[in-house]
Structures are given as C-alpha cells and as structure tokens.
Design a binder for these strands. Structure first.
Lengths: 246, 246
DNA sequence: CGTACGTTTGATCTTTCTCAATAATGGTGG
DNA sequence: CCACCATTATTGAGAAAGATCAAACGTACG
C-alpha cells in the first residue's frame, strides 16, 4: 500500500466494484471527516443493542458479524474484508440487531452518521452505491441461509471458501488461486453452523481431494473449478459487475 | 376489508409499522400507477435471473422467497404477508438472485420501477421507508441464518412461529393469540432446513407440550410466553417501533 | 521453556434423515 | 350429496451425518 494513500481509498475501491462514481463523488467521499481506530483481533466494533452515532468502515484487516442464541451458541452471520462498510444500516435504523467484531488486527474509519447522510441526500450516485452495498449484504445473507439450511458440511465449507476467494479476488486482494484466510476452524464452524471438530475433518477431506491447500493463514485453490462444483457455487448473488470465473 | 379501500392501502399499513409518513407521502403512494394481478398458490412472481421492470407489492395473501441448490434442494429464505413489498431490491439491482412464489392465492400490485424511483428521489420520508423495509428484511435474513445454523429443530420451529405471529400481530392481522398460517409442513421444513417428517414430529411435540394448537390453516398460541422461551425469540430484530409482548 | 491457543484424532452418542407405508383432508365432477 | 383423486399429514424402523467428549499434538509468543 502506498504510504501516502488516503485512508478511505479501500472504501472507494469496494464501492466501485459495483457502482459507478464520478470524480466529484470520489472526492466528496475523500472529504468526509473521520477518525481512525486501530483495533486488535476480537475487539468489538459494535454490540447488539448499541445506538451508533457514527458509521464504521473497515480500512484494513478482517471483521465479522455475529449473533448469539440464548444459551450462548454463536453464529457468524457475515465476513468482512478491507474496504467493506460495516454500518450503513445505522444510517436508517437505530438499534443494532447484531454485533460486529474484528477477526484480525486492523483499522476502522469512523464517519459521523450525519455526514454520510448528507452525501446520500445530495449525491444520487453515492446514495445508489450505499443502497447497493446494503442490498448485496442482504443477498449474501440469503445465500447463507441456503448454505446452512440445505448443504452438507463438505459443500457448505467449499461454498464459504469460494465466496471468500471471489470477494477477495474482486477487490484485487490475493492472486487468482490463493488468498489470505486468517480464520480459526472454530470461527469457520460458527460461520457454517457446524462443530470445529467436524470442520477440521471436512477441511482435511477437501485438502486430501486436492481442492484446497492450507498453510498458516493462507489458503490456495489448486482446483478452483472443482471446488466451485463441490460447493455448488455461482457468484451471481454477489452482484459483481464483471462476472469472473468465480 | 372495506370494499372501497384503495388497493395499495396494505402497503401503507406495512410501511407505517416502522416509518412515519405524512398525508402528502401517503397520497403520493396512492397516486402511483399500478396493475393488479390475481395469482394462484405457487405461481411465480419473480424468478432467479429475471430483470424485473416493475415492483411487486403483495396486497393480499401470502408469498415466500426461495433458492435452490444445484441438486434441487429448496430453501425458503423469507415469508411475506399482506402489505409486504416484494421487490424494492430491484430499484437498485438488476438481476434477481432468488425466486418469489405465492404461498396462497392472493394478489399483487405491479408498480413500474421508474415511478417508485421517482418518489424515492423526491420524497425523503418515502426513501427512508423503502430503505428501512430493505434493512429489516436483511435483519430477518440474518436471524434466519442464526436460527437454521444454531438452534435445534424444536427451537427453530418455535422461533419461526413466533416471528410469524409477531409480524401478523404488528399488522393487525390475527388476534393476540392466534393467526392464519396457510403453510404445509413441507414448506415449513424448507423454511427451517429440516425434513417434513421431522417437522411433523416436532410440531406434534410442541402441541403435546401445550405451546401451540393447530387446526386447518390456523395456528394458535395457548402459551405465548413459553413458546417464546422455547424458540429463544426476541422481537428486536424485527425493528417494530412499538415493542410488543412478542 | 512454559503457557495459551489452535489443530488433529479417536470413540461414542444423538439428532435428524431416509425410506416406506398408511391415514386424513380438500377439492372435483357427477 | 357421494365417489374419487391428489395433496398433505402421520407413523414406524433403520441409517447416517454430525455432535460430543476427551486427549494428544503443534506452534507462536512472552
């Protein structure tokens, strides 16, 4: 990363995956006031029940959304990567209905609600980008319901990995056949509605079948085509403007 | 229902559950051009891959959203009741990423995209109501991920029934302890990620425990408090302005 | 070099699925 | 109103995916 790069540049890249902004829109976004908070892994960005007054944008690292059942079981609801807006929801709703936590060390830009609201009201292209972002998050949630509800462990994990790889690829993070995946097997279990033990066994099976390879916090996809088949993955629901191989 | 009632009145009631509209907003909505389509149960309103040019509002009956896996397993992603907008998503995105079907016989009002878009651009309160509706659907999807991913069959079904009862109650459809539930056990299975056989057994168990009672297409809740406990249900994620007992 | 966290493995148990058959139920034409 | 058909609900028996419990193994880091 260019040391002099504007801190909100990842947000622009993320929005421009799906929406067209002109130079004035881009500049208006760059001119937003914001505070950067550097956060360690597992720090809460937002807690269920909060009434946030500013909007968090993930400008480096990874994060996730989660909900808990009454008896403490955890479900990860979404994964987020550098550039993702985490909080557009609270431009329109008051109470947070879920929590957001850092997955890795990273940084977040906090932008006052009213400043983004002002841009949304004055710049149609930005309003459209904001709502599109909200809608794509919503589409991903629906796909997760299908994934958790109707696919077996093998397909479920393969699908999750395909989604992650595709989204990383669309943002230019990670090469065509490998990317960073800094997540524990327990978190993977919480994202897929499985047990960490079963995730471990299923991951090993995928690896033995030559569909993935793991090392440290990286994952690679030696046979992307077959991984997509196994995971029953089609990228349509991600609404990427350029439909890629994944 | 008043025979002379405007056909879009259910939409107004639905939006006003969460958003404040003034009389001019209401009139602008009533003045929208639309065509009514009467539809039988299981008719498709929208298919995955479509590029809809108009926006469907459910003005009577029930509908559901669904996605299919590659090998034909079905997951119901959302249930919709009279008054629900089914298609606000396509004011901003082009390709449908899931299908919508009628659950019962009913009717839909089709409003041209551009006419709603015009209202959204000129009436902030309507824009806010539209986006809030989208966000609440999104919140419900997240809760469904948790429900399907981390609750056992008993809790999962109880939760779904609580959600349905609460939403019906919020719209004034159905009394405090019973409402219409015109859904087969197979559809209930597809909504919860279970099998119809298991849904049947679980439903009977809930009934034997005195938590629900079924007859024809009605369901009643003899012990709402305990049903909420069993279903681990809290209505926060529905973002109802008036927090009710459910 | 020890502690904490994450991964891996084995053995056993449970929930839920699958397969298969039977009973209700609702709607239809006569 | 009745006989018939299609759909939906119910029940039983057996199988399987995944959970649970418990322990050992690696690895990073202070």
């Amino acid at each position: 990363m260019n040391a002099a790069e504007h801190r909100l540049e990842p947000l622009l890249r993320s929005l421009e995956v799906r929406s067209n902004l002109d130079e004035a829109d881009r500049q208006a976004l760059r001119d937003l006031p914001f505070k950067v908070r550097t956060l360690d892994a597992s720090t809460y960005i937002l807690r269920e029940g909060d009434l946030p007054e500013s909007c968090a944008i993930l400008i480096s690292g990874f994060a996730y959304r989660q909900k808990l059942t009454g008896d403490g079981a955890r479900q990860i609801i979404a994964l987020h990567i550098t550039g993702d807006p985490l909080d557009f929801q609270h431009l329109f709703l008051d109470v947070a209905d879920h929590s957001i936590q850092m997955l890795t060390h990273g940084a977040v830009a906090m932008i006052p609600r009213k400043d983004i609201q002002h841009l949304v009201h004055t710049r149609p292209a930005i309003a459209s980008a904001v709502v599109s972002n909200i809608l794509v998050d919503s589409s991903i949630s629906r796909e997760w319901v299908l994934n958790v509800g109707r696919r077996d462990a093998r397909a479920r994990l393969a699908h999750l990995l395909c989604e992650f790889g595709s989204r990383m690829g669309a943002l230019g993070l990670g090469g065509p056949d490998s990317c960073e995946l800094p997540i524990t097997q327990e978190q993977l279990a919480d994202a897929t509605g499985l047990t960490s033990v079963h995730v471990n066994r299923t991951l090993k099976a995928l690896e033995a079948a030559g569909l993935i390879a793991r090392s440290k916090r990286m994952i690679s996809f030696p046979d992307w085509t077959r991984l997509r088949e196994v995971g029953d993955f089609s990228a349509r629901y991600l609404h990427l403007q350029i439909q890629e191989s994944g």
